[in-house]
Amino acid sequence: MNKKELVENIASAADISKAAAEKALNSTLAAIAETLKNGDKVTLVGFGTFSVSKREARKGRNPQTGKTINIPAKNVAKFKAGSKLSEAIN
């Protein structure tokens, strides 16, 4: 499912326009991203938890040349599924 299909699904389930559904989805995603950017986590009970993890700098190898390269540290987003989501897919 892509974003367009998700918006259509939200619009029909909530009986609202596609424009309103897209605005709500974009606002939700922006709020999650902003919270993660601030280093906090977002917990949606039953669905799951979004969090940020720090990935340390490390050495890597260019597969084409075999030359060693430095990979910089960065923050990565993580998601851990909640119990209701896990039950729904199994």
Rank of each mutant, 00 (worst) to 15 (best):
T35W: 05
A11M: 05
S83Y: 01
A77H: 03
A11R: 05
K3F: 04
A57I: 08
E34Q: 14
I16V: 15
K84V: 05
I16F: 14
A11E: 06
K84I: 04
A13H: 15
A13K: 15
T68L: 08
I89H: 06
E34T: 03
N38T: 06
P63K: 00
K74G: 00
V42C: 11
I69L: 13
K80R: 14
I71C: 00
N62A: 04
K78C: 00
E22Q: 14
A20L: 09
A31H: 08
G66N: 11
S12F: 11
E22V: 02
E8W: 00
E22S: 12
E87L: 04
A57N: 07
A77L: 02
V76T: 08
I10S: 13
L44A: 12
A57R: 10
A81P: 12
N9D: 15
A81M: 10
A19K: 15
T43P: 09
V45G: 09
I71S: 04
S86K: 15
N38Y: 03
T28D: 01
G39S: 04
G60P: 02
L25M: 13
A13T: 14
L29G: 06
A30D: 15
E87A: 13
L44Y: 04
L29T: 13
S53I: 00
T65I: 06
M1G: 03
K74E: 00
V52T: 14
G66E: 13
R61S: 02
S86H: 04
I89P: 09
K84A: 11
A33T: 09
I69S: 04
V42A: 13
I89E: 00
S17F: 10
N75S: 10
L6Q: 07
S51G: 04
K41C: 09
A31Y: 06
G60W: 12
G82H: 14
F79E: 08
K78L: 02
P72Y: 07
T35Y: 09
P72R: 10
A57V: 02
A19Y: 09
D15G: 11
G60Y: 12
D40T: 05
A33Q: 12
K74H: 10
T49G: 09
N70S: 14
K37I: 03
I69Y: 13
E5V: 02
E34G: 12
T28N: 03
V7Y: 12
K84S: 04
A77T: 14
K37H: 08
G82T: 05
A31L: 10
V7C: 06
N9K: 15
F79K: 10
N70G: 01
N70L: 06
V76W: 00
D40R: 11
L36Y: 08
D15K: 15
G48Y: 12
A24E: 00
N90K: 14
A19S: 12
G60H: 14
V76I: 07
A57F: 09
F50D: 00
R61E: 01
I89Q: 11
K80P: 05
